[in-house]
Amino acid sequence: MSYNNIITALSNNITTITINRPSKLNALNKETIEELHHAFKTAETDKNTKVIIVTGSGEKAFVAGADISEFADFDTNEGEKLAAKGQDILFNFVENLSTPVIAAINGFALGGGLELAMACHFRVASDNAKMGLPEVSLGVIPGYGGTQRLPQLVGKGRAMELIMTAGMIDATTALSYGLVNHVEKQEDLLALCQKIAAKILRNSPVAIGAAIKAINANYKDGVNGFEIEIKQFGNSFATKDFKEGTTAFLQKRKADFPGE
């Protein structure tokens, strides 16, 4: 499939998805969200893709928010549908992928942009990155999971302050808050993400997918994360990756995981 607003590339088992609307600072409109859904779904089902990196084009923005012009005249019902569909096809979808997703935050990550980064499994930021959820300055609140994921990552008090003030934080502050895992010079950002991805590639993709499911379970209402962990742990014993991993360990050699 050809895309109008994103670019995808596969190299060394890593699919890189680049949001490419530089004139709009890579803002998320309806078409871009749908294209991202398709790209993530395609990467998830591609056996050659073991890690996904998502970033923005240019040097200014990862994603500078949602395209406000698309919903400025929406009513209550339309607003609810907008948030529900977006969460379903992109933000929750990304969070629950079994393929690890790294957000390479290369500039402004505001509103829906930060919400997309937070839906990824972890985040790496360039040293010029700025992050925030400014929705209340527009008379609305974050609608793509921001009020839920930000407190999980930085704590309730910091999330309350960031959302209420509609302020931005820099990469160093985001690192100290635990919002991002690493900060790197912009020119070296993708290289660092690829280096981390290379470490992930050494391990069992089946086990990684199970670990993602177990970790996410801790943050779902009505779900006992310990029970999910026990179930996923047990399921691991029936996989070819477990057989290969344990055999390689006992034979003192590097494992060659089949991904099954």
Rank of each mutant, 00 (worst) to 15 (best):
D73H: 12
T247E: 09
A109K: 07
V124Y: 02
G259R: 05
R158K: 15
K81C: 05
F71D: 03
K85V: 14
P258F: 05
K252P: 00
A9I: 02
G146K: 01
V136C: 08
S98H: 03
E227T: 04
T165E: 03
C193P: 08
A210G: 04
M164H: 12
D256M: 12
A39Q: 03
D46V: 07
L201S: 05
G143Y: 08
P22M: 14
L192Y: 14
F62K: 09
Q251C: 10
N20D: 15
T239E: 02
F249M: 13
L97E: 01
E95D: 01
R253C: 02
D67N: 05
D75Q: 14
R123S: 09
H182K: 15
F257H: 02
K47W: 02
S204T: 05
K130H: 06
D188K: 15
V206L: 04
M131V: 01
G146E: 00
G107S: 11
K60C: 05
G56V: 03
F62V: 14
L36D: 00
P22C: 11
Y3I: 03
N216S: 09
D88V: 13
Y219C: 06
K60G: 06
G145H: 07
N20E: 12
L189H: 08
K47I: 14
P258N: 06
K81Q: 13
S176L: 11
A39P: 03
F242L: 04
A84L: 13
N216M: 02
N106F: 11
T55H: 05
Q152E: 13
D88C: 09
F237G: 01
E227C: 09
K243Y: 04
D188A: 11
I228Q: 06
A174R: 04
V154K: 04
A125R: 03
V101D: 02
N13V: 03
D127W: 06
T247I: 06
N13R: 05
G58Q: 10
T246V: 11
D170F: 08
K60L: 13
I169Q: 00
G209D: 02
L201V: 01
L175D: 06
F237M: 11
D46I: 07
G143N: 09
P205R: 07
F91R: 10
I19T: 06
K231P: 00
